[in-house]
Simulated scan of single mutants.
Amino acid sequence: MSRQEIEEKVREFLIEDLEIDEDKIKDDAKLKDDMGIDSLDFVDIVVIVEKKFGFKIKPEEMQNVITLKDFCDYIEKKLG
């Protein structure tokens, strides 16, 4: 899967499933501070990522994931 496809899928579920305003979805946007993603949203994200990308997120691997770019980098690395 290409980086562009990853970014499109992530963008799609952020808008459709988590109802995040499209204007807030930028590479350098912080997931918690800028996009308002809270711990309950992260539970949904774990389920969505497993369904759309086919792997489970390990919480300890998400410690350094701050921005949307970090999140897409993480997915790209896992799909490696």
Rank of each mutant, 00 (worst) to 15 (best):
M35K: 09
G54E: 00
R11F: 12
F42W: 09
K32F: 04
D33K: 10
L68W: 13
K9L: 07
R11T: 05
K69V: 00
S2P: 12
V46F: 14
V47C: 02
F42S: 02
D33E: 15
D17R: 11
E61D: 15
K30A: 14
I37P: 00
I20M: 08
D73Y: 04
K32I: 04
I75K: 07
V47Y: 05
D28N: 15
K30D: 14
D34I: 03
F42K: 00
S2D: 14
E22S: 14
K77V: 04
I6Q: 13
M1L: 11
I57Q: 09
D21F: 11
K26V: 13
L40T: 01
S39I: 06
G36R: 03
I6V: 15
K26H: 08
K58W: 00
K26A: 14
L40F: 12
D70I: 06
E5G: 01
K56E: 15
D41Q: 03
D21L: 11
E7S: 10
D70W: 09
E5F: 04
G80Y: 00
D23L: 07
I48L: 15
K52D: 07
V43W: 01
D44V: 00
Y74P: 04
D44P: 02
E7H: 04
K56G: 04
F42T: 01
R3L: 11
V46N: 07
M1Q: 13
F13P: 01
F53A: 09
Q63T: 05
E12C: 02
I15F: 01
S39Q: 02
D38W: 09
E16K: 15
D44W: 01
I66A: 03
V46T: 08
D17V: 01
D28H: 15
D27Q: 07
A29C: 08
I6Y: 11
C72F: 02
E12L: 04
R3C: 01
I20F: 06
F71I: 06
E19M: 10
L40P: 06
R11H: 13
T67D: 10
D34A: 09
K26M: 14
D21T: 04
A29M: 10
D73S: 09
D27W: 06
A29R: 07
G54N: 02
D17A: 01
K30P: 11
N64Y: 10
Q4D: 14
M1S: 14
K78E: 10
V43Y: 02
V10Y: 07
L14C: 12
K9D: 08
I37A: 01
E5V: 11
E19D: 15
G54M: 00
R3T: 06
E50S: 05
K78S: 05
L14A: 12
E5T: 08
P59L: 11
V10N: 06
D23M: 05
I45Q: 05
